[in-house]
Design a binder for these strands. Sequence first.
DNA 1: ACCTGAACACCGTTCAAGT
DNA 2: ACCTGAACACCGTTCAAGT
Lengths: 185, 185
Amino acid sequence: MTIRPAGAGRLSADDWIQAGYAILADDGLKALKIDRLCSRLCVTKGSFYWHFKDLAAFLKAVADRWGASRDERRAVIAELESLEPRERLSRMLDQFADPSGWALERAVREWARTDATVEARVAESDRWVFRAVRQVFVDLGFDADEADLRAKMLFYTAVGFIYVGPQGQRGGRRQRERMLDALTG
Amino acid sequence: MTIRPAGAGRLSADDWIQAGYAILADDGLKALKIDRLCSRLCVTKGSFYWHFKDLAAFLKAVADRWGASRDERRAVIAELESLEPRERLSRMLDQFADPSGWALERAVREWARTDATVEARVAESDRWVFRAVRQVFVDLGFDADEADLRAKMLFYTAVGFIYVGPQGQRGGRRQRERMLDALTG
DNA sequence: ACCTGAACACCGTTCAAGT
DNA sequence: ACCTGAACACCGTTCAAGT
């Protein structure tokens, strides 16, 4: 939230991870260099190596943190279980429609292409979310095949949207609801 | 297609670009280093700098080549115009369902996140394809709003699939056709 | 405990010299 | 025309020394 002013006390590992998140979201994995982190945090490289063994350890810490934030989102979605299916779907989609995490999400998926650990985390998160979406369609009374198909359409649409960004007319929440109506009707 | 055997004559700029494609698809943009290209082609760095001004010029050449291959695909899709809409959609989706280009497609989209030129090319390609898909739904008799919505669902589903890979049961062509039936019905 | 500053290895880049 | 091989600048890494 607040940017650490230059010379405002010592840093924690957390400060480095936050800065890593920001660089990742702004300019992607390629830009995530120690020098860049240092200039952002107004310290020299030695400081980095006091907090982290090496770049790989730092990146692992960043990935762990991302995994933790995914676990939080999973908990939020799990709590929707008590809602009726159509409403549950609506709330799930709200989670994805928030653009504030898209840049980071893309960056992490990009990262996953060249890092097996990150890839495994992303894949596990995808599987969990997909199953939750499929379950909604099962709860709506569709048979296994039909639920699978409809869950795919919705899930891939959401991921695809994060990558491509808005196309065509401005849709917004209204169009999202119409899409859900089409998929659940 | 064929790998250039070590010591088999001199290289062309084209050989470098091919090697670049392969590295990009295999291990992403981060792995696209001059040293890596050289060891793949069995030459030293000086050779690279005879063919290309610098790394940026090489990357531009690779991007141009990708743009050219997109123009070819665009032409293929444009030629489908004479087909009836439902069949046209089926053929379009066949273009996307071929996994052989997915790794490169992801790599180029990843690249686009940190390169404005590549980003512009990808965005233009996306716009063109999206409009072609939307036109099919218009031709099927849907009004502008409905065609826009259905085109989004199909387009984002295709892009999302390329990123996430198969989820749930094995779908294949049969499930693709069922999805098209659902979207066009 | 946390950081500086200088040192060293690696990859992008240059260039004179080779065939 | 096309390539080698050695040189140099940059960023990841180390470490003795500072507060």
